[in-house]
Amino acid sequence: MAIAALFLVLILGAATQSTYAVQHTVGDSSGWTNFGDYTTWAAGKTFNVGDTLLFSYGSSHSVDVVSKSDYDNCATGNAIDSYTGGSTTVKLAQPGPMYFVCPSFGHCSTGMKLAINVVSQSSNSPATTTPSYGSNSSPPSTTSPSTPISKPTKDAGSANIANMVVVGFSLILAPLFMFMS
C-alpha cells in the first residue's frame, strides 16, 4: 500500500507540473506601444502551449493576428483575429509560429509587430510547422469587431497557488493512507 501511495503522489506531482502556464505581458511595463522593441523582448523567452500573451495598449492601437507573409509586409487587411479594447489576452493553444501586428496606419512599419514561436510543453523544442488554414492555404478573412474582444484565461498566479495546494494535500494524505493500511 505504501508503494501505491507513493505512486499517487508522484502522479499528482507530474500532473500538477504540466498545468503551469505563464502569462507574458507583451512589452513588459511599457505594454504594446509604438516605442517597443518586440524582437528583443521575445528573444529571451520561451512561449509554451497553454501560456498567454497579455497585450495592454491605448485607444490608438489594437492587435491583429496575421500570417507570416502579412507580418513581413505589414499587411493587415486579411487578419486571422483582431482585438480592440485596450487589454487583450491571447492563449497560445498550439505549437508553431505566431505573428501579431498593430493595424493602425504606420505602426507595424515602425516596429509595432511581434513574432513568436510556441513550443509544446512536453518537448520545449521549437516547432517547425506553420499554421494551417485548411484547403485554401490562406488565412480566413475576418472583419474587425465593433466591440472589444478579449479571451479571458486563468491568472497564472492563482493557478500556481491551486497547484501548490493540490501537491500539499497529496503530501499530507499519502502518509495518512500508509498508516491506515
Results as ranks from 00 to 15, higher is better:
Gly13His: 11
Ala14Tyr: 13
Thr16Pro: 03
Gln17Met: 09
Thr19Trp: 15
Tyr20Glu: 10
Ala21Gln: 13
Val22His: 10
Gln23Leu: 05
His24Thr: 03
Thr25Lys: 10
Val26Met: 04
Ser29Met: 05
Asn34Asp: 13
Thr39Asn: 12
Ala42Pro: 03
Lys45Gly: 08
Lys45Val: 03
Phe47Glu: 02
Phe47Tyr: 11
Asp51Trp: 08
Thr52Asn: 15
Leu54Ile: 03
Phe55Glu: 08
Phe55Gly: 03
Ser56Leu: 14
Tyr57Gly: 02
Val66Arg: 01
Lys68His: 01
Lys68Val: 03
Lys68Glu: 04
Lys68Cys: 00
Tyr71His: 05
Tyr71Pro: 06
Asp72Leu: 01
Asp72Gln: 05
Cys74Phe: 03
Ala75Ser: 11
Thr76Gly: 10
Tyr83Asp: 06
Thr84Ile: 13
Ser87Gln: 15
Thr88Cys: 00
Thr88Gly: 01
Thr89Asn: 02
Thr89Asp: 05
Ala93Gly: 10
Pro95Asn: 00
Gly96Lys: 02
Gly96Phe: 02
Met98Arg: 15
Tyr99His: 05
Phe100Lys: 05
Val101Lys: 04
Val101Phe: 01
Ser104Trp: 07
Cys108His: 06
Thr110Ile: 15
Lys113Glu: 08
Lys113Asp: 10
Leu114Phe: 09
Ala115Cys: 04
Ala115Trp: 06
Val118Trp: 04
Val119Gln: 14
Ser120Ile: 02
Gln121Met: 05
Gln121Arg: 15
Pro126Tyr: 12
Pro126Thr: 14
Thr129Ile: 04
Ser135Asp: 06
Ser138Cys: 10
Ser141Glu: 02
Thr143Lys: 13
Ser144Asp: 05
Thr147Val: 06
Thr147Asn: 06
Pro152Thr: 08
Thr153Pro: 00
Thr153Phe: 07
Lys154Tyr: 15
Asp155Trp: 12
Ala156Thr: 09
Ser158Glu: 13
Asn160Asp: 14
Ala162Pro: 04
Met164Arg: 14
Val166Gly: 09
Val167Pro: 05
Ser170Thr: 13
Ile172Glu: 08
Ile172Phe: 12
Leu173Asn: 04
Ala174Ile: 04
Pro175Cys: 02
Phe177Arg: 00
Met178Val: 15
Met178Leu: 11
Ser181Gln: 09
